[in-house]
Design a protein around this nucleic acid. Structure first.
Lengths: 248, 248
DNA sequence: CGGTGAGTGATTGCATGCAAACAGGCTGTC
DNA sequence: GACAGCCTGTTTGCATGCAATCACTCACCG
């Protein structure tokens, strides 16, 4: 298994340095003190990309070889990811990607929608015109993705827009919580967005949202966000329930 | 740890084992796979008890000796606490207790108030009568603390009540986020609650809150919680601003 | 044939070793 | 006296070793 990662290297055994250190000696220095953080980002990306499936076990060996780090920073990364809720650590049995039931996703969405509602009024009060312009620009990008049928891009920009709206509230704690909780369910939301039937309506709702934000109509924005979530999630949920039912 | 094989050894000095292992040999077994978690709880308590002051550096040596664990689980604990926002890790310089400015506490309170608002309607819909009774009982305990002038007890039960109300929403993600974010600012909120002038009014507000909960009046509860937070925080903030101004 | 328990190879949890980075004192120069 | 540079003890970051535990097999018993 470990030979899969190294196509032609003859494998140096008494070598203490990592592969990465060999490839880029000063990268190791840059990373010093931040190894675990980088590993966290790498693993998070792998989970969100579906490379590590929900419920699947993550072996230390596999990742130390795949990422070129040793077990210590890797295990620190697991602890961080566990705190974020992306993995679960079973004592003596290692880490596995957290698998959410439809009910859990449902509740997570309730939280996300709630966080956006909380952000709405402060965002209208404290957001800058530049920030609003950025949201609007991203909205145009999203519409372009829709026209091009680029589902992946559409979905990614959609997430970005929502995060940016929350960031407009200028509340770092709120932004951080929203980011983490959003990541926790991203995979599941994406599954539902394949229903392109909803795209047109979602774009329309976004237009209203952007307008309310620009006009700094806090209470209206809050209600629009709430409705937008509700509508979107209803569709996604139907898809999920038909898909995930078999196991668990 | 290796002393497990020798039941009656009187403590050898070149002993690599920890104090804890000596005191309770099988505790070590119980802890296996959960060391970091226990250390996290211990450190969190120390921070919230004020034993580790905000801004103060936490040396690994000090804590390994104090808690009887080695550096590996301790460092894992630091990563967890950093993710929770209770400490910050500066590369090559170790961990320090996060110190929040009044503005940061302000924003954290905005988030907490928001989370309670989010919880209000689901709590009224999904909370059980038993849970409501528990909230009411704790409220009585709190009133007793107020009468006895037990500030510490009053404050602790107050926090418990708010957490319990959030838990009534039966949304684990929401409860978790509320718990973590609440811990992040507990120290700062406590500082303000010394103003006992507010106690009477707070108790009255709580009575209304409990009543709204029991009658499952979601929107009303949401507004009461919002107002309760706003009133309480206004007082606390005034105290904090007069205290924390000098340094930072 | 099903079930049970010893054996064993793999995997995890923690302890510790080693090198990089830092902090603080010291010396020598100007 | 001010300060740059060096030296040294301390602390942190990561690598690795060792023991506990797990997962699996397979012989053995009923």
């Amino acid at each position: 298994m470990q030979s899969l990662t190294e196509p032609a290297t003859p494998d140096q055994s008494p070598e203490p340095a990592t592969d990465m250190a060999d490839l880029a000696p000063d990268l190791a220095r840059t990373l010093r003190g931040r190894s675990a953080t980088h590993v966290v980002e790498r693993i998070r990306d792998m989970i969100l990309a579906g490379e590590l499936p929900p419920g699947g076990r993550i072996s230390e060996r596999m990742l130390t070889e795949g990422l070129g780090v040793t077990r210590t920073p890797l295990r620190e990364a697991f602890k961080i990811l566990e705190t974020e809720g992306l993995v679960q650590i079973v004592p003596n049995r290692g880490a596995q990607v957290t698998k959410l039931s439809p009910e859990e996703v449902d509740l997570a969405m309730e939280l996300l929608a709630g966080l956006e509602s909380v952000a709405a009024e402060p965002a209208c009060e404290r957001g800058t015109a530049e920030e609003f312009a950025r949201v609007e620009a991203r909205h145009e990008d999203m519409v372009a993705c829709q026209r091009a049928g680029d589902l992946m891009g559409y979905f990614r920009i959609n997430q970005e827009i929502h995060q940016t709206i929350v960031d407009c509230a200028h509340n770092p704690a709120l932004s951080r919580v929203y980011r983490v909780e959003s990541a926790r369910v991203r995979l599941y939301r994406f599954a539902g967005n394949r229903v392109s039937e909803r795209w047109a309506r979602a774009v329309m709702e976004h237009e209203q949202i952007v307008a309310a934000l620009k006009q700094r109509q806090g209470p209206l924005l809050r209600e629009l966000l709430r409705a937008h979530h509700f509508n979107g999630w209803r569709v996604t949920r139907r898809v999920l329930e038909h898909e995930v039912q078999p196991d668990r």
